[in-house]
Amino acid sequence: MMQQEEKLRVSTEQLEGGLGLVAAAGYINNEGGQAIADAVNELVASGCRTILIDLEGTRIINSIGISILLEILDRLMESGGTMAFCNLTPTIARTFEIMGLVQYARIFPDRAAALAALGRDG
């Protein structure tokens, strides 16, 4: 049913300064959101306190997936961490705005801008 390009692909990277990168491309539904949650949990368990989620390649997202992102953000903030996103399409940025995600997470236009700011600010 789901085409290969729509199945969410997730990769992680642990960077310097407690920064964890999650790259997610594909459809963020309940399954995709959970895959991102698992990746974030893994990075946090490894000591990351700032999580950057790069959504380049993600064009479709639904409210269930965003709700899971909100839950991830909730847990991260409770443990003193922060979350940021980059490479959002205008529609995904709009849905994040409507659902309140942008009030608690930083948004950057691309990965380079995010890494520069997060590396500088922590």
Partner: peptide, 10 residues
């Protein structure tokens, strides 16, 4: 958001 995530209904 904290402790009160509106999970569905959006």
């Amino acid at each position: 958001i904290l402790g009160c995530v509106a999970k569905r209904g959006w």
